[in-house]
Design a protein around this nucleic acid. Structure first.
Lengths: 141, 141
DNA sequence: CTTGACTCTATAGTTACTAGAGGGATTGTA
DNA sequence: TACAATCCCTCTAGTAACTATAGAGTCAAG
């Protein structure tokens, strides 16, 4: 009765430790235990774990997923909020894309500074990198 | 003689703790000390710190920056390697962009599943999220 | 009854910082 | 000279989302 953790990991395609981690992080309810203290998961656990992994593959944070799981408890009434949550995540992804596009531009410009070995005495790339002051914010995953 | 750490932080535009962190991480050489054990930085420290911050703003890892600093010791001879390092970083950025583009597509498709409140009894978004198994790798900053 | 595969808990490591505790140094003012 | 404000010091712990290890217990097959 119930799947052991290794079985679940195989079915869902993640590591055993990740499952235990989600439990401690409050994303997956504690399953029942066997006589020998092994975790025994139900189909609903399996489904919830798949949801979590799917959301993670879409790069949602665990916090966002926690919110989604709360909303799921009354999915019908929370239709609006669920859509908002997904929209907010799309916004985050697009913001990241914009940052990366900008970054790539800067890098390509930097790269083009190089006039080849022995052309000049110095490395133009290093010159540019240490020259100006930058207050960049990084990409922040 | 030499700038105190707060002064350097102000000039470069980062936090005092960040500077100490770079020292411990081996990115910034240990500066001399005052009689009262305060760090005293030179202009070359300042320049190197600016280089580090610029690279960080381009989202290079500290490890990549460490490599770049090593190459910088003999910049003229290492022209090729410096270019390679920048190219490799551009590749990483482009890989991330590709992932995000894919992600956005998936999210938009997911979002479009919603047929509005009260249209159907269930939430199509949640259905899709917990339905299929996904072996996604995440975006990995 | 032993071997091997599985599971358990608890802890430390990863990245690039940031924030805090608990103290000492320096500077300006009264 | 006393005192407060502001700086600086070291050390430790926290962040996100896991991953990896140690050291122990459980279970099925041979």
């Amino acid at each position: 009765m119930g799947y052991k953790i290794g079985e679940v990991a195989r079915k869902v395609g993640c590591k055993v430790e990740t499952i235990r981690f989600y439990e401690k992080a409050g994303l997956l309810p504690e399953p029942s235990r066997s006589a020998g203290n092994f975790r025994l998961y139900s189909d609903s656990h399996l489904e919830q774990l798949r949801l979590i992994r799917h959301c993670r593959s879409l790069d949602m944070s665990l916090d966002t997923i926690r919110n989604l799981l709360k909303l799921r408890l009354h999915a019908a009434e929370n239709c609006r909020e669920i859509n908002d949550l997904v929209d907010a995540h799309i916004c985050r992804v697009e913001a990241q894309m914009k940052l990366l596009t900008h970054l790539r531009g800067s890098l390509q410009k930097l790269r083009s500074q190089c006039s080849g070995p022995e052309a000049s005495g110095t490395c133009e790339i290093l010159l540019e990198l240490s020259g100006c002051e930058c207050h960049g914010a990084g990409v922040g995953s």
